[in-house]
Amino acid sequence: MFKSQLNLSFLFLQFLVLQFSSTVSAIRDNIGFREKTLCRTTVQGRYLLSDDNGYVCDALSVDPQSRCCPVKGEKFSCQGCNLLSQCCNSYEFCVSCCVNPARTQKEQVLKMKIAKPATAGNFQSVFDFCAGRCRHNSESVVHENAYLSDFHHCFSLRSNSSGPGVTQLETRLNGINVFIGRQGDSCDSVCKSKGQSCVVNKLLLLNQCDIIQKYFSCKGGCLASMGADQPAEVVDDAPSHLNPTACLYTRTQAMLSCDGSHRHTRRLCPCA
């Protein structure tokens, strides 16, 4: 009888030990707190913002604790962006498109200076670069008081004068014959004289200084301009205020046209 009671007491003691140890274990598992994810966001827009995860949302839908946009919709959205010029008509979507690792290389960005002076600091992250680069800059304005185009939020690492990879652009011109027109000719007339037609959507590909300089000498440099007669080169005997021998490209891409012409320029024309 005594031995039976002793065995029962021993089993009860083991049960208590097991219960206590599992409770302690559970408590210890819950001692640590999960690290909260905090987002950085743009603050320029009145209605929209972009977070450093690459999402765009309206200000009312931001998580009040994490400051992150809801994880829905397209990540790294390029809505309203021209991916060739890398310019957008919205600041927030410009930042969202820019922070995509496939578009902006972190190693390259972290080496860049925030401003031109040698004493200027470097960007600390891709988000810092994109948030700064997508704001307005001198390349997107004309006469210092108007925008060249609605697409004035640009995130390219380099300006148009050293634009996207030339090899890639030239590949997209496969099947296109590029001709230099005579002074005052439109691309419609240039292509027609060759028994071909002007391909208007290829004008955008030619509207790059690196491409233009392969066909013209551009002794007067490569300049941003406005007009339907571009890309083109200003003839030698043009009035001085028109920048003789300069090559011209336009940031107002909507103006590019096959029928545009100017009596003091020679056009670069895509024909097929």
Rank of each mutant, 00 (worst) to 15 (best):
D210K: 08
A246I: 07
I212V: 06
L204W: 01
A232L: 08
H262K: 06
D229I: 01
L256H: 03
T250W: 05
Q196F: 04
V178G: 03
K202I: 08
Q213I: 04
D188A: 10
N243T: 09
G181L: 03
L256I: 02
A254R: 12
G220I: 06
M255V: 13
L248M: 10
T252I: 07
S197F: 06
S197D: 08
L242N: 07
S225F: 09
G175H: 08
I176S: 11
S240Q: 10
F179D: 02
L203V: 02
Q208V: 00
D259N: 15
Y215W: 08
I180L: 04
D236I: 08
D210S: 05
D185S: 04
L206D: 02
G181W: 05
S193C: 12
T245D: 09
A238P: 08
P239K: 10
P244M: 00
A238D: 10
N201W: 13
S189Y: 14
K214W: 06
R251H: 11
L206E: 00
M255H: 06
D185P: 00
L242S: 13
V235S: 09
K214Q: 11
D259P: 15
C218F: 00
S189L: 11
V190N: 02
F216T: 01
N201Q: 15
S261L: 15
A224L: 10
A238C: 08
S261H: 14
T250R: 03
K214C: 05
L203S: 06
L248K: 10
Q208Y: 07
A228H: 00
H264V: 13
A246Q: 11
F216I: 00
S197I: 10
I180Q: 05
P244T: 04
R263C: 11
A224G: 01
C191E: 12
L205Y: 10
S261Y: 14
C209Y: 01
K192H: 15
A232V: 14
D210H: 03
C209R: 04
